[in-house]
Design a protein around this nucleic acid. Structure first.
Length: 532
RNA sequence: GGCGGCAUAGCCAAGUGGCUAAGGCGACGGUCUGCAAAAUCGUUAUCCCCAGUUCGACUCUGGGUGCCGCCUCCA
């Protein structure tokens, strides 16, 4: 880890719309606030991406020597939580608790760093009341019948983050939603909502009620990071109105120069070319995915693309009879156009594949198997006495990776840096031809230690390779209903006929294994198997 | 309608005012192998269209086209 911060880091800031150098309020320290989930359901892949992105940022900044305070909130008071509680006949606090636990469970598998603080709205009611009071005192908010609204027109820079003007917004306002006539302006938003029957409420100077959306983040960020802090993260869809309103609240209460200096917004996960979202209903929960793929694979997948880009999540369904790809209508009907097979819904479910995850899984397996072989090599081959230089691609691996992250946390570019060293290492492992003994050993060692360092930043590649590979294979076997004992027995049998150079029999057994979906790799030390 | 973003090979996806436009998947060819597989090596693009700025643009500016997002809850 670098003790001194030397190289500048650039990041894209939504407010200025361009790439800027990260200059923190206090040298060597970073305060990050990440908008966490509203806990009214299981987190989907998009929510998970919004957590993985700041996770890598935090890890990277720490690697670069920054002292980071990472705050990620939980919104546990919200209309949807209340509605859900009412539907299910349970306290809304219990609903929140249930989904907070689920959120933690889902993230735990994805190797996330713990936030330093994970504040909840319900714990910050006094701060919220104080903030609302300040805004009223300053003339930036007003009370109507127990509700408190923010007086948007009084906040001169409203719209700066989302790049829109009050007038533009006023034109559009009212066309899509009903306007509450009690508000001074249609754009004014609620800071405090008076209680309605059957809702949870807290006492306030304006009567019992609960906080509006937006205000909680202003309260929690100032409580834990101060009135001004460095980076504010969240999904692109929070830019307006959520983050715009946070700015209005916080700067309104604490002064124009306060609040976040840099705004980092991640792109969406797209499914079928459209944003994956709870309101559209076209989402996959994180646990649906982690039931099918290794959690580290999911994490890797989420980081294969730059965080500001959309990430396509694709689904493939093949015909159970002929293996042909089915399009959307064929997936619904189950009728295969090429072979005429009529598949049942259950059969089709077993034919669902996610190519992006599949690819990520294979890539990760390639990386881990390289690491496994490299470690075996280092533990069996003797360390040379002389110190020859290691191969360039490996020597430059960590710095190249880091350089990409310094450029707006470009994880996709960073991963590309690994390809060359991986190829060279596999080459060195296969043969020592053309390189000196010392170079060979030291290059492999340098690769292994480099990957360990990168694992700290990336949150992948850090497990024991053999363990990861084994659990991946076992997991797949279980999901595919593969009888491992049978596979092993066939391998033993094949080993015997191969020893007798009975190639015909060996090939026959291999075909049998192929039918089971198993591929065989023959090597000098016996045969290995993997999924095709 | 307003605002914002994107457009790079068969697919996914980095990137830069001028050096061979990363990388992955796929495909094809070689090495390795009993044959395969795995691994490895090689091949596989001139960057949506038009105009401009420039000695030079895929990269900057203007216009167009297409896609997406936000403007209502949303990561």
């Amino acid at each position: 880890m670098n003790q001194n911060i030397q190289e500048p880091i650039f990041l894209h800031d939504t407010q200025t719309g361009g790439k800027v150098e990260l200059r923190t309020i206090e040298s060597g320290k970073v305060g990050i606030y990440c908008c966490g989930p509203t806990v009214y359901g299981l987190t989907h892949l998009g929510n998970t991406r919004a957590a993985v992105v700041p996770d890598v940022i935090v890890r990277f900044l720490r690697h670069q020597g920054y002292e980071v305070k990472y705050v990620r909130n939980l919104t546990d008071i919200d209309d949807k939580i209340i509605t859900l509680g009412r539907e299910e006949g349970i306290e809304s606090a219990a609903v929140a608790e249930k989904f907070i636990n689920a959120y933690h469970e889902d993230l735990a598998g994805l190797n996330m760093v713990q936030p330093d603080v994970e504040p909840r709205v319900s714990e910050h009611i006094p701060h919220i009341l104080e903030l609302v009071g300040t805004l009223i005192d300053k003339g930036l908010a007003y009370e109507v019948d127990g509700d408190v609204y923010y007086r948007v027109r009084r906040f001169k820079t409203y719209g700066k983050l989302s790049h829109r003007s009050l007038d533009e917004m006023l034109e559009g306002a009212g066309s899509r939603i009903e306007v509450d006539e009690r508000k001074e302006s249609p754009l004014d938003f609620a800071l405090w909502k008076s209680v309605k029957p059957g809702e949870p409420s807290w006492e306030s100077p304006w009567g019992p009620g609960r906080p509006g959306w937006h205000i909680e983040c202003s309260a929690m960020s100032s409580t834990h990071l101060g009135d001004s802090f460095d980076i504010h993260c969240g999904g692109r869809d929070l830019i307006f109105p959520h983050h715009e309103n946070e700015i209005a609240q916080s700067q309104g209460a604490h002064g124009v120069d306060s609040f976040a200096r840099f705004w980092v917004h991640n792109g969406f996960i797209n499914f079928d070319g459209e944003k994956m979202s709870k309101s559209l209903g076209n989402f996959f929960t994180t646990r649906q995915i982690t039931a099918l793929y290794d959690t580290e694979t999911v994490r890797y997948f989420l980081l294969t693309v730059h965080y500001r880009s959309g990430l396509n999540f694709e689904l493939e369904v093949t015909c159970p009879a002929c293996g042909g790809l089915l399009n959307k209508t064929e997936q619904d009907s189950g009728l295969c156009p090429s072979c005429g097979n009529q598949a049942t819904v259950e059969e089709l479910k077993g034919r669902v594949r996610f190519p992006g995850l599949e690819e990520a899984d294979d890539r990760l397996a390639y990386i881990y198997s390289t690491l496994a072989k490299a470690r075996t090599f280092l533990s069996t081959a003797k360390r040379p006495g002389n110190e020859d230089p290691v191969l360039d691609s490996v020597a430059e691996m960590v710095s190249g990776f880091v350089a990409h992250l310094r450029n707006d946390f470009n994880t996709g570019g960073a991963l590309g840096v690994l390809s060359k060293p991986l190829g060279e290492i596999n080459g060195l492992l296969a043969s020592g031809k053309g390189v000196g003994k010392a170079t060979r050993w030291l290059t492999i060692e340098s690769f292994v230690s480099g990957m360990e360092e990168l694992a700290g930043i990336f949150g992948c590649f850090g497990q024991d390779p053999e363990t990861w590979l084994r659990s991946r294979r076992d997991g797949k076997a279980a999901r595919n209903g593969l009888d491992i004992q049978r596979v092993e027995a066939l391998l033993v049998e094949r080993q015997e006929v191969r020893a007798a150079k009975n190639w015909e029999a060996a090939d026959r057994i291999r075909e049998e294994l192929t039918d089971l979906g198993v591929g065989v790799q023959d090597g000098p030390e016996g045969s290995n198997w993997s999924f095709l």
